[in-house]
């Protein structure tokens, strides 16, 4: 009975400690027991810092509560909170995730001087004319011609790609990288896809079919959640 009433279970893993916190009792009780438990486990001075992962289970903590929790643990010299995991998120966070994970269709010719800026993936049914600009936190897919500027992964998603039925962009931007069209006149290419190559950290263009192999998780919800 007494053993099962324990509110904090400590497990050692390869990466450090995992604290599983009971999600039925009150937050105060947790803090109290945590303080008590960690104080009794005083370790030797020369130990290295130990990473701690906290698993909250079905408990939601506000940022202040999380900070307080971290502080209690941090006070015990050799423990550092690495991450806090919870099964729950707030409605706002969920909406935010969804926003970043959605493909947003637009039916429009983006003309000179016009800008589309969205969160998530952009599906443009129409053209981007020279002087026009499309921006998205995720990928950009253009059913028509891309002759203007496209900026994918605006918030820093380096895995984002830009694809168009006809590519003759004046500039491509992915995350913080920029690639300019050459100064000489080019013909433009059909059905190609631009991506950021990690090795040379440059924006490269290849056949759409080849880029899919490099970005197999292009459409997966998880990828976009993590990048959101």
């Amino acid at each position: 009975m007494i053993a099962s009433k324990q509110k904090i279970a400590i497990k050692g893993t390869r990466h450090g400690l995992t604290l599983q916190l009971d999600d039925q009792c009150s937050y105060k009780e947790i803090l109290g027991e945590l303080d008590e438990k960690l104080s009794s486990n005083n370790q030797a001075e020369d130990d290295q810092l130990i990473n701690v992962t906290i698993q909250l289970g079905n408990r939601y903590l506000t940022q202040e509560q999380k900070d307080a929790l971290k502080k209690v643990i941090r006070e015990k010299q050799h423990l550092v909170v690495d991450s806090i995991e919870s099964n729950l998120i707030t409605k706002e966070e969920a909406k935010e995730w969804k926003k970043h994970a959605e493909v947003k269709p637009f039916v429009k010719v983006v003309r000179s001087g016009q800008v589309i800026n969205i969160e998530g993936d952009l599906l443009l049914i129409g053209d981007v004319n020279p002087g026009g600009k499309v921006m998205a936190t995720g990928n950009i897919f253009i059913m028509g011609s891309l002759r203007g500027i496209a900026h994918a992964g605006v918030d820093g998603d380096e895995k984002a790609v830009i694809s168009a039925s006809f590519m003759k962009p004046s500039q491509l931007r992915i995350s913080d990288s920029i690639s300019q069209a050459p100064d000489y006149e080019t013909d433009g290419v059909y059905m190609e896809c631009a991506y950021l190559d990690e090795k040379v950290s440059k924006i490269l263009m290849e056949r759409l079919q080849d880029v899919i192999k490099k970005r197999p998780d292009l459409s997966s919800f998880e990828r976009r959640m993590l990048n959101g």
Partner: peptide
């Protein structure tokens, strides 16, 4: 042509 494109955008 570029300016015409801009103008069409405004007319729309």
């Amino acid at each position: 042509i570029r300016d015409a494109d801009r103008i069409i955008g405004l007319l729309e």
